[in-house]
């Protein structure tokens, strides 16, 4: 959990807005540090967290969270965290073997045309199941769904439309019905101008999700090139619906990722420059 980002977003683990759909995206940079931030943030806020980790193994997320001061294994044992390890689940489908109990959630690997219905069913069952009947003495707060990341689904052959459907269903179920939060990461490659013709899939997905989201954090590399002291810039975009119509506010920060956190600062105020 990065305190500087919390103060930018004006939220603390004790008080945060519910029913938000947060979109994280990156281009020529890596936004996965934000996923780790939100994971530790919601675990500290005592939310019921469902994490779809599609790109890395559990040990990776666990090791990083340990550095941020949250233990994933403990959260899993307590029932606070439902961790879906995509890599492990996919193996039994990609290398079919007898006697393996195949999970239904990664069904789309067998035939991408089916869509992500089974994955959505997994999300709903893990999010709402515990919300109704909390097991054990502890009761958890509003449910939160984190996805790292959606563009892997595109690489595995799922159509961008199906991914958009999935995110819309998740938003309807988690944000609207259960008053929880959804955080999704999309990674795009290449330059913006190249995307127009080439990369319809992920660019379209990004546009569609930007339309749905209520808060977008867009991470980019520095336009002037690589620098050791500034890792990139993040554009924070709030979209609030008010009585007088939609209100959009945008702020731009530069960031540097450290070993155990990240620092955010206004443009040109890096300690390396000043």
């Amino acid at each position: 959990m990065f305190t500087e980002l919390n103060s930018i977003l004006n939220s603390t683990p004790d008080s945060f807005t519910q029913g938000e759909f947060i979109l994280l995206s990156d281009r020529q940079s890596d936004a996965s540090f934000l996923i780790h931030h939100f994971l530790s943030f919601y675990l500290r806020a005592r939310c019921k967290v469902c994490f779809l980790g599609l790109v890395q193994s559990f040990s990776h997320y666990s090791a990083v969270s340990q550095r941020l001061g949250v233990s994933l294994t403990q959260a899993k044992e307590k029932g606070q965290l439902v961790f879906f390890e995509g890599l492990k689940e996919s193996l039994s489908i990609l290398i079919p073997q007898e006697g393996n109990t195949e999970s239904q959630a990664m069904d789309f690997l067998r035939d991408p045309a089916v869509g992500l219905r089974s994955l959505y069913e997994f999300v709903v069952s893990s999010v709402s199941g515990a919300g109704r009947a909390p097991e054990g003495p502890e009761e958890w707060g509003p449910p939160v769904l984190l996805v790292d990341d959606l563009s892997v689904l595109l690489s595995l052959g799922v159509a961008a439309g199906a991914v958009l459907d999935f995110s819309h269903y998740c938003r309807a179920a988690v944000c609207s019905q259960l008053q929880g939060n959804v955080v999704m990461l999309v990674r795009c490659g290449g330059d913006e101008e190249e995307d127009e013709g080439d990369d319809e899939g992920s660019a379209w997905l990004l546009r569609g999700l930007t339309h749905q989201c209520s808060l977008a954090l867009h991470v980019q590399g520095l336009p002037t090139g690589y620098c050791r002291d500034i890792h990139g810039q993040v554009e924070v975009c709030w979209r609030r619906r008010r009585a007088d119509g939609q209100h959009t506010q945008t702020k731009l920060f530069q960031y540097k990722v450290h070993d155990k956190g990240a620092s955010f600062f206004a443009r040109g105020t890096s300690s390396a420059v000043l």
């Binding site: 890599l87 492990k88 193996l91 990609l94 290398i95 892997v152 690489s155 595995l156 052959g157």
Partner: peptide, 15 residues
């Protein structure tokens, strides 16, 4: 998506 799916499986196997 053949190569990307294979690489995903390879990563799963190696991890």
């Amino acid at each position: 998506h053949a190569l990307t799916t294979f690489l995903y499986g390879l990563r799963a196997l190696l991890r």
